[in-house]
Design a protein around this nucleic acid. Structure first.
Lengths: 410, 410
DNA sequence: TCGCGTCGTGTTTACGTAAACATCGTCCGG
DNA sequence: CCGGACGATGTTTACGTAAACACGACGCGA
C-alpha cells in the first residue's frame, strides 16, 4: 500500500494525460493500512492487549542499567529535591506555586529544576487528582467540513477551559470498531467523551458505554438517553424549502445525504414535511452520499426533468455537483433552476454562481458540546438526556431566483 | 455574503456570562512556578484549577462515607479483588489477559469486574509504564483541508499502532500561545509531539521545547533541527508551471498564499525558479491568503491583464476564486486563460470547469509523521534532523488548455 | 518415597505527586 | 521571660497498577 501510490501518482501526473478523471481524486482508495501491527489483535475476551506487548517476558522495563548512558531520563521531584537540598514536598510546592516557600529556597529549587530539565509527570498527577483534564472525541472522519469544524471548535473551547482533546478515529464504522473505540476510551486518559457519530451505530453501543462516563453526542437523536447537541437540521431544511417556495417554485426536488446519516434523514424529513404542509407535490428524492460526485450524478438526472425548477441539496458539495451538471447540460442557474445547499462552507460563496445555502454554526455546536460535557464533569452527573439545538440561518446568494414564468420576477 | 461566517470565531471566543473563572486557576502568587519557562515570567499559568477543590469538606477519600450517593465511584482493582475473593494481582492478570490464571478464578474475577463496572485506571497504568500511548498534535487550525486531512491520517495511523492523538489547538498564533501550548504539552499525557505549524514561529520556540520530547514537524524547513515531514511543495509547484509552459503559454502568473506560510513561500519560490530556468519573464505575483475571496480579488485584477493566459494558484480555494472572477469577467477558462490549483481537494473535480491541480497526498504525510515519531519513541532518540518529502502529482482536468494562438493545438 | 520443578496465587514494592500531618524555629504579647 | 501562634520545611501516606518475588500444593521421575 505504501508504495503503490508513488508511481501510481507519477503516472497520473504525466502531463497531457488527457482528460483525467477524478478516479483518484475522490477516494484515496482505501489502500492504506497500518504498516505493521505489533501484536496480534487480542483474541482473548477482555482487554485489548497492551500495545507494548505481551508475554515475552523480556526486558521492557529498561530499569536502571541500560547501557549507553541513556536511561530513565525522566526527572522526578525527588531528583530535583536532592539537588536543591530540600524535600520533595517543597519541590511540589514550588512547582505548583503554593505559598509558604521562602524566596531563597524557591530560587534554589527553580535552579535545580532548570538544571535537570524537570517536567511534572502528568500520569502521577492524574493519578493523584483522579482526572486528566482531557476530553475524548470519537468520530468517523474529519474529512467532512462539518466534522472538522466542529472538532476544531471543541478543541478551542476545551482549551480555553484547560482541557485538551483526545481524538479517537474510527476508520470503518463497523460495530466492532466502535465498540473497540469505546473500550479503548475507557482505558484512555479521558474525563469525558464527545461522540460524533451516527445514531444507528450508537444504538448497539449503549450497553458498552461504561456507566460512569460523561457523554455528549452530536448529530443524533439519542436525546432520550444522552445529552445531544446538534444543528437544528429540520429548521435549516425548512428555511431552504420555504425560501424556494416563496420564490414561486411549485415544488422542490431534494438530493439527500446517505441514509445512514441522521442529519441527512432529518433534512429529508423536514423537506418533505414542509412541502406537504404547503400542499405541494413531493417529488422522489435523489439519493446522494455527501460527495460532489453524487450531486453531479443527481444533477444529470434532474437536468432532464422538465418540471424541475428548484433543488435543495443536503450539503454544499452535492450542490456543487449539481451546479456543474446543470452547467454542462446548459441549464441556467438560477435562470431555469434554483439550487440551495446546506452547510455554508467557505467556498460556496465562490461557486458559479455563488450558492444560496443554509448556514450551520459549527463553532456554536462545538462550544455547547464543551459546555455540556464540562457541566457533567463538574456536577459529577452522568449524561443527562436532552437535546440542544443550534439554530441555522439562510444565506441567500445567487443560485436562487424566482421561478421561471413567475410574473413576480422583479 | 461571505462575511457571514467570518467572525464566528471571534464570537465563539467570547466567554459567556462569567461562569467559570479559571484565572485563579493559575498561580495565585504570580508566575514563578514553572521551570520550563526560562525567561518569561508569564503570569497566566497553565495549570487549571485542581479538581480536588474543597468539595464537601475532606470527604475525598470516597472510600466509605457516601454523603449523598454522589461520590467518586471509581472502582479499583482492589474492589474487584475483594468482591471476587482474590488478590488484586490476580485481577491485574485477568485484566491484562496474562496466562497463569485458572479458568474458574478468571471467571469469578470477570464477573466481579462486570458487576462493579470496573475500568482500568489509565493514569495509574501510565505511571507504572512510564508512557501514555498518546501523541500530541499542536496546530493552528483544522479549517484548512490540508491540516484536517493530515490530522485525520495521523490519527488513523496512530490508532493502528495503539496510539491516540491529543489535539492542542492554538487559536491565535502568537508566540505566547505557542509557548503556552508547548508548556502545556510538556505537562500533558503525551509521549511525543507532532507540530503542524509555521516555521517562523517555530524558530522562537526552540528554546522552550523540552529536551526529552520527541518531535516531528510538518510544513516547515526546520529540517536542520527536527525531523520534518512535508509534501514536496517545490516539486508540486514545478509540475504545475511546467505543465502550463508545455501547453505553450509564454509565462505563468501566480497567486500566492500568505507570506507567513512556509508552504506558500516554497511554492512561490519554485514557481519563480521554474520560470527563470526556462528563460521566461516572471510576472509580479499576486498576494493571496488561501481564501477563495483572495483568489477572486486576484482574478479580477488578472482578468484585465492582457498578456495573462495562465495562472498558478497556490491552492484550490484561490483557484476557485479565480474561476469565478474570470467567469464574471467573461474570460473563458481554459479557452483564454488556463488555471492550475494546488491540493486537489475533493471538490475541485466539480468546479466549473473541473480544476487541473497538484495532488497532495495528505494521508501519506500523516503516515510518515506517525512512523517517524514512533521510531523516535522506540529508539528513545530525540528528534533527528532531516526532511522527508512526500511527492506530489499533477491531476490534469479541464481548466488548462494550450495557449490561445498556439499552432500546436493538437 | 523424596526432591524438585511448575502452576496458581498472594505479598511486597515502586512509579511520581501532593494532601495531611508533624516538626522545628522564631517572634510577639502578656 | 515564657507560652503559644505562625511560618518554613520535612515526613507519612495514598492514589491504582503491575513487576518481582514468595509461597504452598501438586505431580512426576528417580
Amino acid at each position: 500500500m505504501g508504495a503503490v501510490n508513488r508511481d501510481d501518482r507519477e503516472q497520473a501526473g504525466t502531463p497531457n494525460s488527457g482528460d483525467t478523471r477524478r478516479e483518484q481524486a475522490g477516494t484515496p482508495s482505501g489502500g492504506d493500512t497500518h504498516p505493521e501491527r505489533p501484536g496480534t489483535p487480542s483474541s482473548g475476551d477482555t482487554r485489548p492487549e497492551r500495545p507494548g506487548t505481551p508475554i515475552s517476558g523480556s526486558a521492557r522495563r529498561g530499569g536502571s542499567d541500560i547501557p549507553g548512558g541513556r536511561r530513565k531520563q525522566r526527572v522526578s521531584m525527588a531528583d530535583v529535591a536532592k539537588l536543591a537540598g530540600v524535600s520533595s514536598q517543597t519541590v511540589s510546592r514550588v512547582s505548583n506555586g503554593h505559598p509558604g516557600v521562602i524566596d531563597a529556597t524557591r530560587e534554589q529549587v527553580l535552579a535545580a529544576m532548570r538544571e535537570l530539565g524537570y517536567r511534572p509527570n502528568s500520569a502521577a498527577r492524574a493519578l493523584r487528582y483522579g482526572q486528566f483534564n482531557t476530553i475524548g472525541v470519537i468520530l468517523f472522519s474529519l474529512a467532512s467540513t462539518g466534522n472538522s469544524r466542529t472538532v476544531e471548535a471543541i478543541a478551542t473551547h476545551a482549551a480555553a477551559e484547560g482541557y485538551a482533546i483526545t481524538l479517537i478515529p474510527i476508520d470503518v464504522p463497523t460495530q466492532d470498531n466502535v465498540l473497540g473505540a469505546f473500550t479503548r476510551m475507557g482505558e484512555l486518559a479521558v474525563d469525558a467523551v464527545i461522540v460524533i457519530i451516527e445514531i444507528h451505530l450508537l444504538d448497539t453501543i449503549t450497553v458498552t458505554l461504561p456507566p460512569g462516563v460523561h457523554v455528549v453526542v452530536v448529530d443524533s437523536d439519542a436525546g432520550d438517553r444522552y445529552s445531544v447537541v446538534d444543528t437544528d437540521q429540520a429548521d435549516g431544511a425548512r428555511r431552504a424549502v420555504r425560501h424556494l417556495l416563496d420564490l414561486g417554485h411549485r415544488t422542490v426536488w431534494h438530493v439527500t445525504g446517505p441514509h445512514t446519516s441522521y442529519a441527512a434523514q432529518s433534512r429529508a424529513r423536514a423537506w418533505r414535511a414542509t412541502l406537504e404542509s404547503a400542499g405541494r407535490p413531493v417529488p422522489e428524492p435523489l439519493p446522494g452520499d455527501w460527495s460532489a460526485e453524487s450531486g453531479y450524478a443527481a444533477g444529470l438526472a434532474l437536468a432532464g426533468e422538465p418540471g424541475c425548477t428548484a433543488v435543495f441539496a443536503a450539503n454544499d458539495q452535492m450542490a456543487l455537483g449539481l451546479l456543474r451538471a446543470f452547467h454542462e447540460r446548459g441549464r441556467d442557474v438560477p435562470g431555469e433552476i434554483s439550487v440551495v445547499g446546506f452547510d455554508d462552507i467557505p467556498e460556496s460563496a465562490y461557486f458559479v454562481p455563488p450558492l444560496t445555502t443554509v448556514h450551520q454554526d459549527f463553532a456554536e455546536v462545538g462550544r455547547r458540546c464543551v459546555r455540556q460535557v464540562l457541566a457533567q464533569i463538574r456536577d459529577g452527573q452522568s449524561s443527562r438526556p436532552g437535546t440542544d439545538l443550534v439554530p441555522t440561518s439562510l444565506v441567500v446568494r445567487r443560485s436562487t431566483a424566482p421561478a421561471p414564468g413567475t410574473g413576480s420576477a422583479s
